[in-house]
Design a binder for these strands. Structure first.
Lengths: 152, 152
DNA sequence: AGTAAAATATTTGATAATCAAACATTTATT
DNA sequence: AATAAATGTTTGATTATCAAATATTTTACT
């Protein structure tokens, strides 16, 4: 790995790491200090609008339904999520966010918004195009790898 | 959040997520299938060259020494890490990678190298400069946030 | 020199995230 | 009606994590 490459690598690792830690701390300090990042992530998986089944949500999050069941148990206990049996197919359980859950979701999104604003704000139009192109390239590559390791 | 911003946000989340999963799977399939990402991370924290103390390593990784102790226990059992009491100060425990540990470390780095190569490879010189600048900006911002939440 | 304080690691007890496999309930198929 | 399939939950296990208690060794102080 040459000098340039390894600088890029280090920057990526550094960014990646600090975002994780910062998100967690930001969450712990805010109004929803009883939520972990993982729980926040579950809220995101459930989503703001549709009511999703357990299976859908688990697939969405890339976890097993067993894992989701215990996560939802806790989120229901804490008042962020509502569980309802589907009336037409009583095997199915539907989950959705409570008002409090939606609030938490939106608050968390502000963090991301802030991050993106700050990144994008100071850029020129050319730079913005460049950033978009770069990220799309990266997402494409990572997506390919992902497929290779999950199907191939 | 405007259209552009939210595209950037989505791309970032997508990349972030898929890298995590792919890394884990790649690891599980390879020659070091008994290592988790977290354990790999511990190996990185110990590093290739110096022998570090437990405290240094824990601080380096942002975890408590208690957590590190159990992680190192397992890595020693699996043959990736060596533990040695410091001869001049016998409170201190020094850890370093075994040959196998170094091998695993280097193998894992290949994944990162591949990623960076693929990202950087197709770029022009101008684009490379821009990428570097962008990442430095992002790292700067994230670093500031990090400090705010960890000290301020 | 002898004791109290500080530094370093480990152990303990607790919680959370995760999986696979066993189980229970409901629906679909034959 | 009986069997198979689908959907969730429960169980048992492992890993990651922390804070607080404990053990050992060194440093500082009197």
């Amino acid at each position: 790995m040459n000098e340039y490459d390894s600088t890029i690598n280090d920057l990526l690792l550094d960014i990646y790491d600090k975002i994780l830690v910062t998100e967690e701390k930001a969450l712990r300090r805010g109004s929803f200090s009883d939520l972990s990042i993982a729980e926040m992530h579950t809220l995101e998986g459930i989503g703001l609008y549709e009511t999703r089944t357990m299976s859908e949500t688990a697939a969405n999050l890339g976890i097993t339904t067993g894992t989701l069941t215990v996560a939802v148990d806790r989120l229901v206990r804490k008042g962020y999520v509502e569980r309802r049996r589907d009336s037409s197919d009583r095997r199915v359980v539907r989950v959705c966010l409570t008002r409090k859950g939606k609030l938490a979701f939106r608050m968390h999104n502000k963090f991301h918004k802030l991050l993106v604003d700050r990144i994008v704000g100071p850029l020129s139009e050319t730079e913005r195009q460049m950033l978009l192109k770069l990220l799309q390239q990266i997402a494409g590559f990572v997506g390919d790898q992902y497929k290779r390791y999950n199907l191939g």
